[in-house]
Design a protein around this nucleic acid. Structure first.
Length: 556
RNA sequence: UGGAGUGUAGCCAAGCGGUAAGGCCCGGGAUUCUGACUCCCGUAUGCGUAGGUUCGAAUCCUACCACUUCAGCCA
């Protein structure tokens, strides 16, 4: 049945072995966020693995809120995940709230474990537990409460649930091994007393299971067969397996497999840091286009497909890795190249007067020359136009293919022009260029036989509108390739920030863009990709610079 | 310094005893009414190091080295 599946990575290899040996019979995965923050590109990697792996083996994936700590969680986050997944193009089979779906069952499993002598109620304080845990090289000390009778433990555990202990006064602990070299195994806490209103279950519970106990039980209860997570949980796997072995009686036990997480150069994804900048008003919000949150990337103009292709291109391993940002940018450009509508925009206008032309006429601009049937839209040419200032040079560097005094260029979609004169302002700067056009050179209808080296974009005075452009630089200064390490080394967060990571400029765009809707994607030809920001109003458009085009021009 | 994990090109990453895939970056060229895209070509006598086994080793064995990670009643 599985014979024609070819594994693409070590996780799929492991799964295939299990399937063939009968250890597992299907592939059901889960994406298990704690609803306590917005998703970012790092989470994307995990969700892509969860969904793609299950899909490959004909299984499915659930979205499960791992909401076992009411002091940190919020239902708004949970809702955002459903939207983010949808945007990414994934539909979970079920949306589950662990608190609602499993708390009662997990509690019963805990009772069974007490009956089996596998768990005990401990009344050591948090500090005492910490002090008796031992160190990396020394064993811990067993709790004085470790050998209570089953009856006493059961009664005390019920007391915990019934609110007879104050917060922090008692825990349920797994009875494993206080001398184990893996610290996680030294009688880990399974339940703590915590009076907090849960966004989903309200005040129904005053005890909450810990991740290490809850997670494997949730997986098992849910029928999840593969619990894929990042490498930071590797040390927890023995515990995961212990809880499955000692707490769950089912036939096909879930299996945890870890992979390395995604790090990007110059990018900080820590929740604390993102939150701090939002609170201090240093960014526009969680969806700031400089953030690599899902909502931020979306607002910036990144596409879900580009993000997915990027992550898939990275492969899967357990090695620590940090990916250069330009690896992501490649996929953003590649996807936008096929999706963005071409348009003309002049970012730094220089006026050009065409002396031998009068009036105005329509021209056609292909919406996307790389896509068949993308169609075209109408723009205009007239005797007064604007070109970008850097497309004209008084002292052209070598191999400069744009407009120079006495030289010719083609205006995209219109005519070839020649620059005959330069008119200066009183301060010595250029006021405008005086040009002539070559009448028989119109695009698509050129009978002149004249070849020019350069084609530049422009807008016509009678067909353009001023808009705001938001330009972004990396939030983190270039020299901090690993900002989390810098932070750990004591560098202040503010020191990491690029001072002018957001700048606003204006541009003249062809009027075709007036009908754009938020999130519409455009390529401003020869410049970059832009998307309309949600802050735009009918008479004031704001475009976010998603990413520039590559510039292969190297003078010399 | 106890446990766990990882070392293949500048960055990722295939490879699973038969003589180092691919992608990004970079360099060169072609093409181009976007200096984009596209298309060619080039980039590890070498796989953390040192030994060993073998006709043959990135793959097996031994030792060592480096890096990451774990001492929440967080997830």
């Amino acid at each position: 049945m599985w014979d024609n599946i070819v594994p693409d990575n070590f996780i799929e290899e492991e799964i295939l072995k299990d399937l063939k040996s009968g250890r597992a019979k299907e592939v059901i995965t889960r994406c298990p966020p704690e609803p306590s923050g917005y998703w970012h590109i790092g989470h994307c990697k995990a969700w892509i693995i969860d969904f793609e792996t299950a899909k490959k083996f004909g299984g499915y994936t659930n979205l499960r809120m791992d909401d076992t700590n009411p002091t940190k969680e919020d239902g708004d986050f949970a809702n955002s995940y459903v939207n983010d997944l949808e945007w990414l193009g994934y539909t979970p089979k079920n949306v589950i709230y662990a608190s609602e779906a499993y708390f009662e069952d997990i509690y019963k499993i805990a009772e069974d474990m007490i009956r089996d002598g596998k768990a005990y109620v401990c009344e050591l304080s948090a500090e005492e537990v910490s002090q008796t845990r031992g160190t990396l090289s020394e064993p811990g000390i067993e709790s004085p409460y470790r050998n209570r009778s089953v009856e006493e433990n059961l009664k005390l555990f019920h007391d915990m649930r019934d609110g007879k202990f104050e917060d922090g006064k008692a825990t349920l602990r797994a009875k494993i091994d206080m001398a184990h070299p893996n610290m996680n195994i030294r009688d880990p806490v399974m339940y703590r007393v915590m009076r907090a209103t849960h966004y989903k279950t309200g005040d129904k519970w005053c005890i909450y299971p810990m991740y290490d106990f809850a997670h494997p039980m949730e997986d098992a209860l849910e029928g999840v067969t593969y619990s894929l997570c990042d490498i930071s949980f590797e040390d927890h796997r023995p515990l995961y397996d212990w809880f499955i072995a000692n707490g769950w009686k089912g036939e096909y036990p879930p299996r945890q497999i870890e992979f390395s997480k995604l790090n990007l150069e110059n990018v900080l994804l820590g929740k604390r840091y993102l939150k701090k900048l939002v609170n201090e008003g240093k960014v526009m919000g969680w969806d700031d286009p400089r953030y690599l949150t899902i909502v931020g990337m979306r607002r910036r103009g990144y596409t879900a497909e580009a993000i997915k292709e990027f992550i898939k291109s990275l492969g899967l391993s357990k090695c620590d890795s940090t990916i250069p940002f330009n690896a992501l940018e490649y996929y953003i450009r590649a996807d936008l190249n096929m999706k963005a509508t071409r348009a003309m925009a002049v970012l730094d206008p220089l006026k050009v007067v065409i002396t031998n032309y009068s009036g105005s006429e329509e021209i056609e601009i292909a919406n996307n020359p790389n896509v068949e049937n993308a169609g075209s839209h109408t723009s205009r040419f007239s005797n007064t136009i604007y070109i970008d200032a850097d497309d004209f040079s008084l002292n052209p560097p070598p191999k400069y293919n744009r407009l120079v005094r006495g030289g010719m260029v083609r205006l995209k979609g219109a005519y070839i022009i020649r620059c005959n004169d330069v008119v200066y302002k009183d301060d010595g700067s250029i006021d405008h260029l005086v040009c002539e056009y070559l009448p028989n050179t119109k695009s698509g209808n050129d009978t002149s036989g004249i070849k020019v080296k350069g084609t530049i974009h422009f807008v016509s005075q009678d067909n353009c509108t001023e808009v705001t452009i938001r330009n972004f630089k990396n939030l983190i200064k270039d020299e901090y390739l690993d900002p989390s390490k810098a932070l750990a080394d004591g560098v202040d967060v503010d020191e990491l920030l690029t001072p002018d990571s957001l700048t606003e400029t204006t541009a003249l765009v062809e009027n075709y863009l007036l009908s754009a809707k938020p999130e519409d994607k455009f390529q401003f030809m020869r410049k970059g990709y832009y998307t309309l920001d949600k802050d735009s109003t009918a008479d004031h458009l704001i475009f976010n610079n998603t990413i520039s085009l590559k510039d292969g021009y190297k003078p010399q």
